[in-house]
Design a protein around this nucleic acid. Structure first.
Lengths: 206, 206
DNA sequence: TTGATTAGGAAACAATCATTCCCTAATATC
DNA sequence: GATATTAGGGAATGATTGTTTCCTAATCAA
């Protein structure tokens, strides 16, 4: 990936910058179309339309289509991570924090965002078999999420909201499966009732 | 889809059949490559190689690539359904039948088959947003599996192996999420311990 | 054996793809 | 104001795609 102008670093811009341009906004467009259609089904035309950039501009900022996808993946993961952390922060103890994280996952798996899909799930399914780079990113992200959930379980065991006999690692891995599955089912447009599903899932912490 | 010669109906073959040829065997090859690479990333060349058929032969048996995919999807679903039913049959009561079903899912999500992936999950993620036909097949299959699991729960409630306060429909939907997520995580090559994961998942039936 | 019929194979086809190239327009420095 | 520099745009370019077409070889009916 090459360096690209960001709003966060406007001073260091070289001369000859035509007008305002935000890479993150462009990447958000790329995320939208990559999530919805996947990597291979997204043509450069659709990509440039979604990014509101011309073909040449995209190839001036990125080496190739794969580099755009990687950048979109990284931004997606960054944004989602922040959303998940802030969902966890809404809980008063470990158990409640985990409950809010699961609820957040269900919400994001529903409606227009759910229909659009998750780029991590998409990469796992579409690319992990043939693209070692993306597979490494996917497994890293899954492990990060898993570690985060395991840490919430351990917090709950310390604050007494989750019994000590619960295996943090195995339960976290099962919950990762649940959350990734939610994105699959959500993309297939099956309705998901957050309160009911999460209410049942919380049995795993008994 | 057009009619194609099957081993199960050899008598009705018109004259001029060069040598033995089994559509199901060819479709198994198509399933292999479609599961691993997905729909768009699979070229006709890779498809014909996997099916051990020439280009013209494939287009003589199917209208287009999409029809091959649909046929492969249908056969995949048929085979997997049979495997799941026979896994369920290994249990003595509803709870044990469900446990064997979940165990079967974990096993199939691991190793070489896990790395290859599930064509239902692949279709949900890659096609359901842009292909109404495949989306309908995916949702139908998810609902079939969900109904099957819900029926196992109800059997367990009748035979006393599962408490009556368990909500069969909601629990089944959550388990569908788990199983589909298993395929995602398995494709990303994270190791899955069947006994431990299923042991935890069975808490949902308490 | 002969004729009708069809699967299998490979080359030819048009369309679409990702990518490259060049031009224009707009700034910052001098 | 003049010049150098660069982001943005769009047409041109190979490569690759899915599909069609034609030919060959093999089989069954007569």
């Amino acid at each position: 990936m090459q360096k690209a102008a960001r709003k966060s670093e406007p001073a260091s811009n070289p001369p000859g910058r035509p007008r305002e341009f935000d890479m993150d906004t462009a990447l958000d467009g790329a995320i939208r179309v990559f999530c919805e259609r996947g990597y291979h089904a997204t043509s450069i035309g659709e990509l440039t339309a979604a990014m509101r950039l011309a073909t040449g501009s995209v190839y001036k900022a990125f080496r190739d289509k794969h580099a755009v996808f990687l950048a979109a993946f990284e931004r997606y993961v960054e944004v989602r991570q922040e959303q998940t952390r802030s969902a966890a922060a809404r809980g008063a103890n470990g158990r409640e924090r985990l409950r809010h994280v699961l609820l957040s996952y269900v919400e994001h798996s529903q409606g227009s965002e759910g229909r659009r899909g998750c780029i991590v799930v998409g990469s796992a399914v579409e690319l992990s078999a043939v693209d070692p780079v993306m597979r490494a990113r996917v497994t890293a992200q899954l492990k990060t999420n898993e570690t985060f959930m395991a840490s919430l379980i351990r917090e709950g065991q310390v604050d007494g909201s989750i019994p000590g006999h619960v295996d943090a690692d195995d339960t976290a891995r099962l919950m990762i499966c649940m959350t990734q599955g939610l994105r699959v089912v959500g993309k297939a447009r099956l309705p998901l009732d957050g309160d009911r599903l999460v209410g049942i899932a919380m049995k795993l912490l008994d």
